[in-house]
Simulated assay, not measured.
Amino acid sequence: MAGVERFAHAGATIVAERRGHGERAYVLIHGIGMGRSVFADLARHLGDGEVVPLDLPGYGEAPEPARVLTMERTADLVAAYLRKRVMQPAVVIGHSMGAQVALEIAVRHPEVVDRIVLVGPTVDPTARSAPRQLWRLLRDIAVESPRVIARGAREYVRAGPRLRAKFHAMLVHRPEDVLHLADVPALVLRGEDDLVALPAWCRQVADGLPQGRLEEVPDHGHETMIRDAAPAARLIREFAGEG
């Protein structure tokens, strides 16, 4: 199956782009201010199976909901989509804020999840404020390629004037409180040079997951799935049993 589809549930809408087909489904959930377009390179490298990058409500081409969704409500929406449209337990891959959504899907709706991949997970409790998160993001992206910076800037503009409220929804979520409830195979993936998701926090996340493990991608920062996604894709495929 291929194509772009909209899915509405409980007053909010996501946009999903479905590519390929097969027994395995990879569902890609973007970070704050981003959209499904940032996964173009990763999707090309994931190999066999169906790849489904999403635009969360109010990002990319998905319309703004009446109210900004919490991480939990966003997880409920994505899980409803998986249940009704994908119809098989999926490898749910979340990047940055998307890792928080992926975690909550595993906690709240484990029946739709085969395993989860948390890439550059946020929010580190030692940096749970907008200024600290923004400073880390700016430092990390400063060393990225012009292509990554341009794509990120475009997606932030598309995220609209409610970005501050979306940032708040991300910051008030406490992933450390629910890690122990996500009892599915879980890979925490970190760029070796990531200045947003620091080593100690990623280790805490991996250790807090009942079936968690940590891997690092050399010579990559926080945008490890956007720029040169082949190394991240290889680790994800090995974790999913395709290596």
Rank of each mutant, 00 (worst) to 15 (best):
D183C: 04
V78A: 06
A197N: 02
I105D: 06
L28I: 10
G49Q: 02
R6H: 08
L198M: 12
E144S: 13
G152S: 11
P185G: 01
H21L: 14
A90G: 09
L198A: 05
A130E: 14
A206N: 01
L163M: 13
A2S: 15
Q211K: 12
A2T: 15
R162S: 03
A232Q: 10
D177K: 10
L134R: 14
A232L: 10
V78K: 09
H168K: 13
G20T: 02
L138M: 07
M87P: 03
R164T: 12
T70M: 06
R234Y: 11
G120V: 03
V217C: 04
A106W: 08
T122K: 01
R234K: 12
F167K: 03
V205M: 01
R19L: 12
A66I: 03
R73K: 13
V148S: 12
E17D: 11
D193E: 12
R174L: 09
E155C: 00
G58T: 03
R139I: 01
D183Y: 06
L189Y: 11
G94R: 04
G243Q: 11
P110L: 09
L56N: 07
R24Y: 06
V172G: 02
K84D: 15
E192P: 03
P65Y: 06
V143H: 13
D55L: 08
D48W: 07
F39G: 11
R237F: 07
D76F: 08
F167I: 11
A62C: 04
V78N: 09
W135Q: 14
G60C: 14
V217Y: 02
W135Y: 13
R164K: 09
G160N: 12
I105P: 06
V148Q: 06
I226P: 00
R6N: 12
A229D: 08
V178D: 10
M87G: 13
G208Y: 00
K166R: 09
A230R: 15
H168G: 09
Y81F: 15
A240E: 10
P53W: 10
H168Q: 13
L77K: 06
L189D: 05
A127H: 15
G98K: 11
E176Q: 02
D193M: 07
H9V: 02
L69E: 07
G11V: 07
C202L: 00
P175A: 01
G47W: 05
L56V: 05
D114C: 07
P218V: 05
G94V: 05
R158C: 00
G3S: 08
V172K: 09
A206C: 05
V86P: 11
I149D: 10
A153R: 14
R139G: 05
L69F: 08
A159C: 02
R213V: 01
A99F: 14
P185E: 02
I226H: 01
H45Y: 15
E5K: 14
L179H: 00
R67E: 14
V68G: 01
A40R: 15
H222N: 13
V119I: 14
P185K: 01
F167S: 09
V178S: 08
V143A: 13
R237S: 05
M170E: 06
A16I: 08
I32S: 14
D41T: 12
R44E: 14
M87T: 13
L82K: 07
R6K: 11
D219S: 12
L138V: 02
A79C: 08
P231F: 04
G58I: 03
V117T: 10
A169E: 09
